[in-house]
């Protein structure tokens, strides 16, 4: 998948990537990202010491989030949204920030299997919930069928809205949805694509649902 936040070069000198360089350079100025958990370490469940050892920044609060099956402990600004926490504290940057007020759907994740806009969720409200992000549904080596269908049908252009579109589409598979293209469009109406890849997105979803595209609506 094309991800603008992905490391620029796998063979970058001393493992330096654009993102981790920016993160380190900016860390001193970012209140609230008290404890950054290296993702690899975080994925080994129950690692929390690394973060508890981090110095407490005044005003931050401890939180444990279950993300893609792993329990992660960290300290966050109590005002932090789930979106910012996923991106800035957990470093899962597949979830995108578009409008930051619930109008575009780029930040869509699943909470206990239901899709929500992570920009409208305070992270503090989600202790104990099962959170699934785009990183949790498939990997480049083992794409989720919906990811594969988006690739096959060219369901994106710039790719910025894509992870949100795919998270919505995966949730849609378990929701009551009629067979027609117009039914899919209605249930995908919470995800906006500025490039206008809508016909291909609908085709990808209909493919996974086993429906041939019906262009009547």
């Amino acid at each position: 998948m094309h991800d603008p936040d992905a490391p620029d070069h796998d063979d970058a000198p001393s493992g330096l990537t654009r993102r981790n360089f920016l993160t380190r350079a900016g860390a001193a100025g970012i209140a609230g990202v008290a404890a950054s958990i290296p993702l690899a370490a975080a994925l080994a469940e129950g690692v929390p010491e690394a973060t508890d050892a981090a110095p407490d920044i005044p005003g931050t609060v401890p939180i444990a989030l279950r993300v893609n099956g792993a329990t992660l402990r960290m300290r966050i600004d109590p005002r932090a949204t789930l979106l910012d926490t996923l991106r800035e504290s957990v470093h899962l940057t597949g979830t995108k920030k578009g409008c930051d007020h619930g109008q575009c759907g780029a930040c869509t994740v699943h909470v206990n299997g239901e899709r929500v806009n992570s920009c409208l969720r305070l992270a503090l409200m989600h202790e104990g919930d099962d959170i699934t992000t785009i990183e949790g549904i498939g990997s480049p080596d083992a794409l989720h069928p919906m990811q594969a269908a988006f690739v096959a049908h060219d369901g994106y252009q710039c790719g910025y809205c894509t992870s949100g579109q795919i998270m919505s589409a995966v949730a849609l598979m378990k929701e009551p949805c009629g067979p027609r293209d117009s039914d899919v469009k209605e249930l995908m109406s919470g995800n906006i694509c500025r490039c206008g890849a809508y016909p291909n997105i609908v085709a990808a979803i209909q493919d996974v649902r086993g429906n041939s595209p019906m262009r009547q609506g």
Binding site: G102, Q103, G105, T108, E114, R115, V116, N117, L120, R121, S168, A171, L172, E175, L187, S189, G190, N191
Partner: peptide, 9 residues
């Protein structure tokens, strides 16, 4: 109201 993501919450 909004999209399905907002209707869910």
């Amino acid at each position: 109201v909004g999209g399905p993501q907002i209707q869910n919450r």
